[in-house]
């Protein structure tokens, strides 16, 4: 369970970083934690914020208050938006998940399928195509891919909508209960198609290459040769021999990629004007709402930690040897 331990350590590091950042950097922590510039505040206001934020107390006590704000789930207070950070984030998470999760699932499935097919037929036409396409796609920045898709599907041809999660008229009608659930869902899917595709294109190549390379390595091993000599069909060798042996690195990689998936979704949300966590973060950066930024970093790190722990558990379940090997070494 080395990954789980490292993930928890990483989570702790983000927690400490969040506490230390406003206090260590040059400038008054009051300015960082309230989000208002010192020169915009009167002395009385600064003092009020200082005591409201407990900045006049010893550092250890401050850390206690900080841990308390995590424990009670508020994650601090955004003075700019006059709301607790956690409720701001909670209202935006569903939109982010609607993009990130489908993209994660589709890219994993496609990556596994294509990578396995290419890796087990080394140097075939399929292998070369998958390789070249992955390398070329890998060189495209995620935002450029998203803009290209938008250009083609929304502006060259007016096939798909370019902003939001629902058309305004459908959303209004749904709020009034005048639209069937199926129509609402269809509209949602139409809006999600491009963002999800853009994010999938961003994650797919590296995943495909990893599966392809590990599969190609397994394919050269003796047990595969024996299986082939015994006359087993290529499909069976691929599914019941190679797949089992590349499952672990694949699961670990999927868990590790959740962080970059959220990052990618952040870019995509900004392009397709979707009110998820990503837009909340850029909004926080533009308005210098530091507590909100820290809250988003905290939540992202938490999601990543959870994903790594889950992938560790899945790994142990997928291969009973893993549990034994890790416990004695």
């Amino acid at each position: 369970m080395k990954n789980t331990a490292a993930a928890l350590l990483c989570f702790a590091a983000v927690m400490i970083l969040n506490f230390a950042l406003p206090r260590m950097l040059p400038g008054d922590p009051v300015a960082y934690l309230s989000g208002f510039a010192e020169e915009d505040m009167t002395a009385a206001q600064v003092e009020r914020y200082r005591s409201a934020l407990h900045l006049d107390e010893p550092v250890l006590k401050q850390f206690g208050y900080y841990l308390g704000s995590i424990a009670d789930g508020s994650l601090g207070y955004s003075f700019k938006k006059e709301e607790s950070v956690s409720s701001l984030i909670a209202s935006r998470i569903p939109a982010t998940l609607q993009i990130a999760l489908p993209a994660l699932v589709i890219s994993s499935a496609l990556g596994l399928y294509l990578g396995l097919a290419a890796g087990s037929r080394r140097d075939s036409a399929l292998d070369r195509t998958v390789n070249a396409a992955s390398i070329a796609l890998n060189a495209v920045p995620g935002f450029a891919a998203a803009l290209g898709l938008m250009l083609f599907f929304c502006f060259r041809h007016r096939w798909l909508p370019y902003s939001g999660l629902n058309s305004p008229e459908i959303a209004a009608a749904a709020a009034a209960g005048r639209v069937s659930a199926a129509a609402f869902l269809a509209d949602r899917v139409r809006h999600l198609a491009l963002p999800v595709t853009a994010l999938t294109l961003g994650i797919l190549p590296s995943r495909c290459l990893l599966v392809r390379n590990t599969a190609a390595e397994e394919n050269g091993k003796k047990y595969v040769l024996y299986a082939r000599q015994r006359g087993l069909a290529p499909g069976i060798i691929r599914r019941s021999y190679i797949l089992k042996n590349i499952a672990q690195p694949f699961i670990v990689m999927t868990g590790l990629s959740v962080g970059s998936c959220v990052g990618g979704s952040l870019v995509v949300e900004n392009i397709f004007s979707i009110n998820g966590m990503g837009r909340l973060l850029t909004d926080a950066v533009y308005t210098l709402d530091y507590p909100l930024m820290q809250g988003i970093l905290f939540v992202t790190a938490g999601a990543m930690t959870a994903a790594i722990i889950v992938s560790d558990i899945v790994c142990a379940l997928a291969d009973p040897m893993a549990g034994r090997r890790n416990s004695d070494g």
Binding site: A6, A7, C10, A13, V14, L21, P22, L25, Y32, L256, G259, S260, V262, G263, G264, L266, V267, L281, T282, A284, V285, L288, Y290, M293, Q294, I296, L297, T300, A301, M304, T305, I308
Partner: peptide, 15 residues
Amino acid sequence: IMLPRLVSLIVLSAF
């Protein structure tokens, strides 16, 4: 390796 790169970078550069 585990830290979410983009989000960390955005927050750190903002600070």
